Simulated assay, not measured.
Amino acid sequence: MTAVLTEAEVAPAAAAQQRRRRRVSGTLAVLPLLAFTAVAFGIPAVAMLNGAFTVKDPTTGATSYGTANLTVSLHGAYLTALAGSVKLSAVCAALGTVLGLPLAQAVVTSRFRALREAVLTASGVLANFGGVPLAFAFVATLGNSGVVTRHLGLTDKGWSLYSFWGLVIVYLYFLIPLMVLTITPALEGLRTQWREAAQNNGATTLQYWRHVALPVLGPSLLGGLVLLFGSAFSAYATAAAMVGSAVPLVTLQIADALSGNVLVGQENVALALSLDMVLVAGLVMAVYLPLQRRSARWLA
């Protein structure tokens, strides 16, 4: 009886010790990732915060901490650029989500495996095709002297690639494929039993999507919307090469402030603008994360 009690007492202790060893092993395994995150993201974040709140006296050159840079970043041309970036990103994200969802659904329901793999592969390539090469491709095609522009006489009809809506079209070139890649796993998680149950109860295809599929996909769609918003919000090279200062964007304002194209000594204002971008992205993520957890329970 004593031996049995001893074994019963020893077993929980051994299990607890094994759990502690696993916890320590897991912590040691994740240390390289934590170190990389601290170097790659932590140091730039600290430098950005320090610069954003560092105010330099133009007369004496003395520095102190204050909110003057943040105040400047939220007024005048800087505020216009920030609002322009938010507007552009929101429009591009909304259109990319609306256009990418049916395309992804067509890919998921396709019976041709080769077509499905080809579309997903092309989406992976196009989602990462941006910057100066993308700007050059659209300028050569839809610019003022582009092939399509001259062939269709678009200039006489009021078309201009170097405008807000021209930039929207260019951004959709890589945002729609990105949405296809993002939403495809969620569409594959929709169970056929749900559609069959809806049909057996007399629901039409539209009613199934309205009352079953879209509520389940809602958090995933919002996640894709957030991802597209972030991609458009942070894009720089494409807009810089194509529209320059024709469309006010915060990323272009940051580049001008860092290089001193407009005013000299505005480097800390550029860091304040970067902090504004981080805050906007943080607000968007704060809405997305709770809904993503809800979606994971349905699609698990």
Results as ranks from 00 to 15, higher is better:
Val280Arg: 08
Leu101Ile: 11
Ser85Ala: 06
Gly265Tyr: 13
Val180Asn: 08
Val168Gly: 10
Tyr173Leu: 01
Asp256Ala: 15
Asn201Ile: 02
Phe229Ile: 05
Phe41Asn: 05
Glu188His: 12
Tyr162Leu: 08
Gly202Lys: 10
Ser85Lys: 03
Leu31Asn: 05
Val247Ile: 09
Ala13Cys: 09
Phe174Ser: 12
Phe233Ala: 13
Gly100Pro: 01
Ala104Trp: 04
Leu33Ile: 09
Ala118Gln: 04
Phe53Ala: 06
Ala81Thr: 02
Asn261Ser: 12
Val284Arg: 05
Glu9Trp: 10
Asn144Ile: 00
Val125Ala: 02
His75Arg: 14
Thr97Cys: 06
Val226Asp: 10
Val216Ala: 06
Leu101Asn: 09
Ser25Glu: 00
Leu115Thr: 06
Ile254Thr: 02
Leu279Met: 14
Ala246Thr: 07
Ala239Lys: 07
Gln253Lys: 06
Lys157Glu: 12
Thr238Trp: 09
Ala198Trp: 11
Leu5Val: 10
Ala47Glu: 01
Ser231Val: 12
Ala14Phe: 01
Gly84Ser: 10
Gly61Ala: 00
Leu252Asp: 02
Arg19Cys: 05
Asn261Lys: 12
Val125Ser: 00
Ala45Phe: 15
Pro58His: 07
Trp159Lys: 03
Ala186Thr: 03
Leu28Asp: 01
Leu275Phe: 15
Thr97Arg: 00
Trp165Lys: 00
Gly265Ala: 14
Leu103Val: 07
Ala137Tyr: 14
Leu152Val: 00
Pro248Thr: 01
Thr121Cys: 08
Ala281Glu: 03
Val247Cys: 10
Ala232Tyr: 11
Gly166Gln: 13
Ala270His: 02
Trp194Ser: 01
Gly26Gln: 14
Arg20Val: 08
Pro290Gly: 10
Asp256Met: 13
Arg294Phe: 09
Pro185Ile: 01
Asp276Lys: 11
Arg111Val: 06
Arg116Leu: 11
Val91Cys: 08
